[in-house]
Nucleic acid binder design. Structure first.
Lengths: 154, 154
DNA sequence: TATTGTTATACTCTATAACTATA
DNA sequence: TATAGTTATAGAGTATAACAATA
């Protein structure tokens, strides 16, 4: 880490930091995504749980909680809701009857695709300002950072 | 908007959207920034209010609420706390005694600089993965988007 | 005894509504 | 009567803690 780009005297102001901008833009994106999901009867964390399940990142609820960076009791209520909507199935693992194995139903896959469509439409609003090329580069950087950061899923 | 980059059939999956990534990364950035501010006795919204005041975006509390995208009653409690820390002064506008004019004190400017330092250290954690050039491009894109999006400040 | 899931409870953040004072 | 600010209250979201079932 050199003096030129390192931690030494660097008069960068708060609104200029990545952190500040991620905090503010993240809040805006969360608000808009929440609105876009509302007609589906879902919140962002529901979409997060469906994603985790669909990607095979978590069969059990405990694994899902770990993958999402939330507490297991929250997964219970998220899963309750998704079961009510017919989006996931919860079956006891016959090998270890303490575990609840979560799987996405056909309806769940349909819902998840609708979540993705909602996110895409928010993308188009948010990124309307960026030319396609810059937008693609931005997406790559976001992916890089998200991949590194421990990535709780929503 | 052409078919190639437009809203037509485009099988982009939820975790691949900017929206999803901004939601998740924004949550991570908010968590880390909150931790980094804790030793200063501040929350991100306090830093947001100080920023708004220091930039002259809001003299009165009502203007501050509008600039931050929050409700006026929240500004009251944020300002209460900042007054208690000696970071801002609240004086009645002599021209209209209903208005409370907020100004940053010297101590407030010092605190705000400490907030910026905290954000920079979170930046270094988060963006350690990105080469300097890519990081700079990412910052530019973030600024562009934040500038357009209505920009509630924290 | 340890672990998975669940339920009951509490806490944090922020909004809404009612109120005060000034205009 | 309308507006800036304040106070009181309520709601959403999520965590912590106590508990039940299974290992």
């Amino acid at each position: 880490m050199t003096d030129a780009e390192g931690t030494a005297a660097r008069p960068q102001t708060l609104p200029g930091t990545l952190t500040f901008q991620l905090v503010t833009l993240g809040a805006i994106a969360t608000d808009r995504f929440t609105e876009a999901l509302a007609p589906l009867g879902l919140k962002p964390k529901h979409a997060g749980l469906m994603t985790v399940v669909s990607r095979g990142l978590a069969a059990s609820q405990l694994e899902a909680a770990a993958a999402m960076g939330v507490v297991p009791s929250l997964v219970v209520s998220l899963a309750d809701h998704l079961v009510k909507l017919g989006a996931i199935e919860r079956v006891r693992d016959p090998r270890d009857r303490r575990r609840q194995v979560l799987t996405l139903t056909r309806q769940g896959r349909r819902l998840l695709e609708q979540c993705a469509a909602a996110a895409r439409s928010v993308d188009d609003e948010l990124a309307a300002a960026l030319p396609a090329e810059q937008r693609a580069a931005f997406a790559r950087s976001l992916s890089d950072l998200a991949g590194r950061a421990g990535l709780p899923t929503a």
